[in-house]
Design a protein around this nucleic acid. Structure first.
Lengths: 189, 189
DNA sequence: GGGTACATGTAATCAGTTACATGATTTA
DNA sequence: TAAATCATGTAACTGATTACATGTACCC
């Protein structure tokens, strides 16, 4: 790595106010805190590993979000002078503080169950039974495939703290997939 | 897998322009198909009844979305000349066709499980066990409350076709809440 | 007759997504 | 060396959310 251009930019420490923090923000902060300074591309790869299986972030967002966080003083950016002009983002103390605060706060936004299949099912009275049957079949297949995927992923985990966290999340993902699967199957009686 | 009408091309039917259809679109089309011509406010009320318990649409969207659909030729708009200048939206044949197509197509976009609590849990290795415990407690409470709410709603349903559809959806919502609840409890061993 | 909840709408903003574009490495 | 794939970045768009703003009816 080239010599980090220490303290690049004006960085007026106290002028980072209006910055709303979304799940994407915490994903970025968390990944950098865990793995050290990263490029957006590395974020993309890592995000696939952790929450990836059931919550996908488009790659463009992993370029723009670090930008935002840097503007807000939570990250610092270091840029390769030549070649690909890669940008590497570092966690700043303010970023670590925000992350710790989030981790320590037991409150979260409620999970909304936004499943297009359920929306469709809720309008089943406008269609015919045959439509519901076909929907249930397809959903059964889809959830079965996901379930298999999650189980396979869970098997590959070690018992580092990191993988332990991942295992927990995969555990509930599996439980929820099982619930979906059982439901759609029950519609096919 | 079923790609919605996002496909480009010289649309042989040649009616309206490219209009991307989101879940909000189908919610609006479906509610108007079921209950007849409606104002945005009525849409807001009805949306709370059907998918409302687990998928909330902000009211502003129920004003802008019918607009979009009307511009696309799927709805027609009728406006009160005086007073509140209420807008009432009617389903046009093209709208009914699009709705039927959607209902008949067993494919849907996959449901993503975007639960901020799980994101936080997936970063548990950056915090302490105490944080996880408190998170699990809170999530337990939250899911217990939701579960009770869903069950109460389910009890009030009749057996019209409409309510039958709603009952199915509430059934799976209950199952999923149970899965969440069991999971967070299991973390509190 | 004044407060407050219901009803209706627009405007501004933002997050998330798609699309476009290109540089660098590997591989056939 | 051509093609394919990985890696990197920006631009443009738009659906969704927040905030603003106002009208109407009801009830103490």
């Amino acid at each position: 790595m080239s010599s980090p251009a220490a303290g690049r930019g004006p960085s007026p420490e106290g002028s980072a106010e209006p910055l709303s923090l979304s799940p994407s923000s915490y994903l970025v902060l968390g990944l950098i805190a865990r793995h050290g300074p990263m490029t957006p591309y590395a974020l993309k790869i890592r995000s696939g590993e952790s929450v990836g299986p059931f919550w996908s972030f488009p790659h463009a967002q992993l370029y723009s979000e670090p930008d935002r966080l840097a503007r807000g003083g939570l990250l610092s950016e270091e840029r390769e002078p030549g070649g690909r002009r890669r940008r590497t983002f570092h966690l700043r103390p303010a970023g670590r503080r925000v992350l710790d605060e989030w981790l320590g706060d037991p409150g979260t936004e409620p999970a909304q169950l936004r499943d297009p299949a359920l929306l469709k099912l809720s309008f089943a009275d406008l269609g015919d039974e045959e439509g519901v049957r076909r929907l249930a079949e397809r959903q059964g297949e889809a959830h079965r495939a996901r379930l298999a995927d999650y189980r396979r992923r869970a098997e590959e985990l070690t018992d580092t703290p990191e993988d332990t966290a991942r295992r927990r999340v995969l555990t509930i993902a599996v439980c929820i997939e099982e619930a979906h699967l059982a439901f759609w199957r029950s519609l096919l009686d």
